[in-house]
Design a protein around this nucleic acid. Sequence first.
DNA 1: TCTGGGGTCCTAGGACCC
DNA 2: TCTGGGGTCCTAGGACCC
Length: 418
Amino acid sequence: MFALVDCNNFYVSCERVFNPCLINQPVVVLSNNDGCIIARSNEAKALNIPMGAPFHIYRDFINAHRVKVYSSNYPLYGDMSNRVMMSLAEFNPNLEVYSIDEAFLKFNQTSGTNSRRGALKIKESIFKWTGIPVSIGLGPTKTLAKIANTFAKKNNHHGVFDLSSKTKQEETLKDINIENIWGISKRWGSKLRMIGIGNALQLRDSSPRRIRQYLGVVVERIVYELQGVACLDINEILPKKNIMCSRSFGNVISEKTILKQFIVEHTIRACEKMRNQNTRAQSVYIFLKTNKFNKEKQYNGGIVLGLNTPCSDTAQIIKLTSSAVDMIYRPGYLYQKAGIMLLDLIPEGINQYDFFENTNYSLSDKRMKVVDLLNKKFGAGTIANGGLRSKNKEKWDSKKYYLSPRYTTQWDELPHVT
DNA sequence: TCTGGGGTCCTAGGACCC
DNA sequence: TCTGGGGTCCTAGGACCC
């Protein structure tokens, strides 16, 4: 049996834990740069504010309905997510953290009469321990557990729904639109509709072989999963193969030197993430973009540069990424977004040495270890590379007009209490 | 005025090997 | 006139997820 545990309106729920006045109020949380609406309370959903809508289009509507607005606060959400996941692991260490607000749990028994009671216990404990409300879907496969979760969220099920029995599956799968099945989105959905498959029940009862010929092995697996034949197992947590750090700027930038500093800052962050999972990069990708929504002349520049030997040394990678800026920068454009991606990451232990060069990681590794340790102990940015001039940061800093305090990760930011 | 930031997997086709 | 039968690796692009 698989369980999918999903935090309800996660970012909104995080804000509510530390600001209970928001309970029962319509609340939305915005993406970076206060761009789009990416989380909505049930009250905000009831006002028909869509997921992913540009904030500026809904600003008047939001003011008129007294919707509370928050900028995204990832230090808070990330920390709350950890608490939820650690709490879940207390119940079942065989879990896969699927996203910041979702986890799959695998139980070695099939569903029985106690399954629902067990899930309710988990749900109540998570709420008691973290303040975050969750919904739990149960099923014999991941795909069915996912579907069960959407029913768990409906009012009358108290946050838990068990889709293990064949009769339950018969009753409910016809109510799931094809596009709402995990792994099937608009394109495949409309292709399936063209051959008369419009809901989960119809997909379940179609021929896997025919579906494979039509859309490939991924959708074939979904057919089996809907039939109750598990094709997907709990994934162990593997190191990422690529790491990206990119941002839209608060204001457009045209000077190369500022863009270069931005790239340096984000190279530093990306390298930290890379070392944190004990990997080295074999190549990097750097890009600069103008604002695609504007009518001004557009430019989209990017370049991949290879490293001779896998590398996790920030200084060496900065050399590469800042030279990349020289290669792709074109004067006369108003840049709006830039970023860096570390590519083809491989574990530190696998050393493919350069035939002609004498690579020795030990000195660099020691140096990076000290840097990471200092930044961890005394706060991010305590020690950084010289290419970064922090006084220029305000030139690209994202808009965050509605930011809440980092309640759980930075004590001196707590509001003063008398 | 204003429009996010991350990831994964699969497939087809090209280039190469014997 | 006629032109085999296996393979591997890499890349780009397309689909999906949160």
